[in-house]
């Protein structure tokens, strides 16, 4: 049902883009929508992050996943239970770049109806890594469509990405990785009963949208040739705020571009904000040095406490009888 609706939305988006490009609304799809999407993205992301950042972190609650720093002769695991900023940076880098926590993943099974076993389960980690890294590299490679001349680092990135190339056309490893990873992530979501149970439209839609982006990209790159020179004119024009609308660009490009714009505009309202949120997660980005350094809660409330004096007053007689020392005789 939720997959179905997501698909319908994607089909609608596709129709809008193709019809729009077909009737010559190039200015709308080539200029207005991209600028609007970027504006929504920037304002939305900044608003979201500021909103998060404005909320205080009253308590220092890192989830420790390794040995604390205590006695000198016990080795502290500064990456899993960091005691200083360096350790926190290391922990965050491992988390953000290599998905450390996901790498720990296990699969629980009940064997013979009596034995629980926890097998290693790295598929989600591998799929996630393949997807995110491919996405990043493809995103960076696309700078060649926005900057003239193509920056050297982009060329270098292309060379590395096409390392296994034999013959023409140039085939990028990431193109295939991302499609494979997306297929895996999608199949996992629809076929695994637990994933299906927890999944929402909010999960299927961005996944299908990104599949749409990757597919149209791959189509243009390897199967349906488009006029790259014109597209680069459009891209550089957009980035330099002097938009040019080249003639005769394949509608497939506009479809690809419209999907991307949709993703960009959708980003701040969606779970995709995990990209920013992961940096702000207090169970990961705080040092485990609670007892060595006081953490201040800006709204630390006054609460009613029970004092020793009240306690002694209530139990004075029994304390006296038991021979316990008293503050007031």
């Amino acid at each position: 049902m939720k997959v179905g609706i997501s698909l319908v939305v994607i089909v609608l988006l596709t129709a809008i883009a193709l019809v729009g490009a077909g009737v010559g609304l190039n200015f709308v799809f080539g200029v207005i929508i991209p600028y609007a999407a970027i504006a929504i993205f920037l304002i939305g992301v900044v608003y979201r992050v500021l909103k998060w950042a404005k909320a205080p972190v009253p308590f220092r609650i890192p989830t420790t996943s390794g040995q604390q720093k205590s006695l000198d002769w016990i080795k502290n695991d500064n990456l899993e239970s960091p005691h200083n900023t360096l350790g926190v940076i290391g922990r965050m880098l491992l988390e953000v770049l290599f998905f450390r926590s996901l790498f720990r993943n296990t699969k629980t099974e009940l064997k013979d109806n009596s034995k629980l076993v926890y097998g290693s389960s790295k598929w989600l980690w591998a799929g996630g890594m393949a997807f995110h890294w491919s996405f990043l590299i493809i995103f960076l490679r696309h700078f060649k469509y926005f900057v003239q001349p193509t920056p050297k680092w982009v060329m270098l990135l292309q060379d590395v990405d096409s390392f296994f190339q034999i013959g023409l056309p140039i085939v990028y490893i990431t193109d295939f990785l991302i499609l494979a990873a997306l297929t895996f992530l999608f199949l996992r979501r629809v076929m695994d009963s637990r994933l299906r149970y927890m999944s929402l439209l909010n999960d299927y839609f961005p996944l299908l949208l990104i599949i749409g982006i990757a597919t149209t990209g791959v189509l243009m790159r390897y199967f349906i040739k488009v006029d790259i020179i014109s597209i680069k004119e459009l891209g550089t024009g957009l980035l330099s705020f002097h938009p040019i609308l080249p003639e005769g660009v394949n509608p497939l490009f506009y479809l690809h571009f419209f999907y991307v714009c949709t993703l960009i505009a959708y980003f701040p309202f969606s779970k995709l904000m995990h990209m920013g949120g992961v940096f702000l997660s207090p169970t990961r980005n705080l040092a485990n040095n609670n007892r060595a350094k006081r953490h201040i809660n800006p709204w630390n409330p006054e609460v009613k406490v029970h004092t020793y004096q009240e306690y002694e007053e209530e139990f004075h007689d029994v304390m006296k009888a038991a021979g316990l020392p008293l503050d007031k005789e």
């Binding site: 979201r48 909103k51 998060w52 950042a53 909320a55 205080p56 972190v57 009253p58 609650i61 926590s101 996901l102 993943n105 296990t106 699969k107 629980t108 009940l110 629980l116 989600l124 996630g128 695994d192 637990r194 994933l195 927890m198 999944s199 929402l200 999960d203 779970k271 904000m273 995990h274 949120g277 992961v278 702000l280 997660s281 207090p282 169970t283 709204w299």
Partner: peptide
């Protein structure tokens, strides 16, 4: 008052890694 609450409400992607980690679920 709690950044944790906001972040935890907003960024879950429902990847399912936590699903079979809870002793009550197991």
């Amino acid at each position: 008052k709690f950044r944790t609450l906001q972040i935890f409400m907003d960024i879950c992607v429902r990847c399912g890694a936590c699903a079979d980690k809870c002793h009550f679920f197991i």
